[in-house]
Design a protein around this nucleic acid. Structure first.
Lengths: 245, 245
DNA sequence: CGTAGACTTGAAGTCGTTCAACGGGTGTGG
DNA sequence: CCACACCCGTTGAACGACTTCAAGTCTACG
């Protein structure tokens, strides 16, 4: 909530990871006024039914998109990392059809819709880049739908871990096999659509097969190849510009 | 494959159902060159891995977006009706991360990416309308994710029926409680993520509770109120301009 | 008239849920 | 500094929803 300068870097890095933009366009982004805010874990950033006049960019931490069933069960339909804009849709969809919350303590940056619209008019390629962002979000949701609809809980979980690892790499937040994953088993369970108790057992199975190791909030992938196979993970759907080895 | 004139009407009607556009913009759409093709049921229109140079607009019939798991199980992640553009994403995402197939016999219209890009440049509001289209598609997927991840099979199926009824109404394809739903139980099962056998039992339960009636490919909703409650259906996520009673 | 595809049925089996309880670490207030 | 509370992770056992297999019926269509 202090350093306002690293935020535009964040977003342009994310955009560039999936779409080539020029220096001038990148620069335009960096000059956008951003209101930076720090938030505790498990707080709503935007709630279903809201009519926001701004978008929220993740700067630090993890956020999630979620909805509740009538029984009060929560389905997480996306996880967002630094550089992502979880509610970019609100630029064209007046009322939120989902909530967005922090998974871990976060700092986020708010950008006014008006500013985004203006920049989209001046730089049509940036508009395309943002459009593309929302399309990649949708592509991830399709994969999650396949995951939840057709794969068993073990495969689903392995798949999610692979996805997170690769996305974190793509924005250069990690480079080795270990990374910080400040997310509880309950939140993981909500993301793959199983119960907390069962998520715990899946984690045990993953450890038993020596696929991962977990120590506090740090996850280490012990066998990337095996984990990918266990999770039926094919990274094409991430639409990254360059394949990450 | 014969009448090329009704197709642009179709798309503009769909766009207008969620976004106000001017006559001039609507006109621009109607002048787009469209290649109309008739297809049998259960045929791929675009396949995963393709790099299409055109988009496909549904003119008659139903299409679906799907992916296969390694075990060969199919998850349908969206159903598209006349007026929809199932692969609009391909405008900005070079390679398809999903396949698109016909559910029933269909006629579809292909529009070149180049033409769409041109019209987006000339009419930025149309570009926004198309962007919005893809965002609504994503909103539907979020609801499907909630449906499949957190609701039981009975609720899921009721929900899907409500959604289809309301979307068909929104484009004025139906007005009464009965409508043509040329889709097999197997396809329905793939859409809600359950087995064919179980889908059959869910249908029996829906009939036993007098919520729906099915005769050939025609579905009649006997109690709209009850079906909505049974499916936990709240239509906000469809982002229709006007609530349909 | 025969065949293929869609729908239907029963029974057995599996995966995941639910309930209930306990352990361990961490932070907070007395 | 200790005690307590809380959250997270863990465990066992019973239950339930859905799957799978296998067979049989119905209808449409060539």
């Amino acid at each position: 909530m202090t350093d306002e300068t690293h935020s535009p870097h964040m977003i342009s890095r994310r955009l560039e990871s999936i779409f080539p933009i020029t220096d001038e366009e990148s620069q335009a982004f960096k000059e956008l006024p951003v209101q930076v805010v720090a938030l505790k874990a498990d707080r709503d950033i935007v709630s279903i039914g809201d009519r926001p006049h701004q978008c929220c960019m993740v700067l630090e931490g993890f956020t999630c998109v979620y909805k509740l069933s009538q029984a009060g069960k929560r389905q997480i339909m996306a996880l967002h990392l630094p550089g992502d804009i979880p509610d970019l849709q609100s630029l064209h969809l007046a009322v939120m059809d989902n909530s967005i919350a922090t998974i871990s303590p976060c700092t986020v940056g708010f950008i006014q819709h008006a500013d985004l619209r203006r920049i989209c008019e001046c730089y049509p390629r940036l508009a395309s880049a943002l459009w593309r962002e929302t399309l990649v979000d949708a592509a991830l949701m399709r994969e999650w739908l396949l995951n939840i609809g057709q794969r068993d809980s073990f495969t689903r979980t392995a798949h999610l871990l692979c996805e997170l690892q690769m996305r974190l790499r793509a924005v250069a937040l990690i480079n080795g096999p270990a990374f910080d994953l400040p997310i509880t088993q309950e939140q993981m369970a909500d993301a793959v659509g199983i119960s907390t108790v069962h998520m715990n057992r899946v984690f045990q199975a993953l450890r038993a097969r020596s696929l991962i190791k977990r120590c506090k909030s740090e996850v280490t992938i012990l066998d990337w190849q095996e984990l990918q196979e266990a999770g039926e993970f094919e990274p094409h759907y991430l639409h990254l510009r360059e394949a990450v080895a």
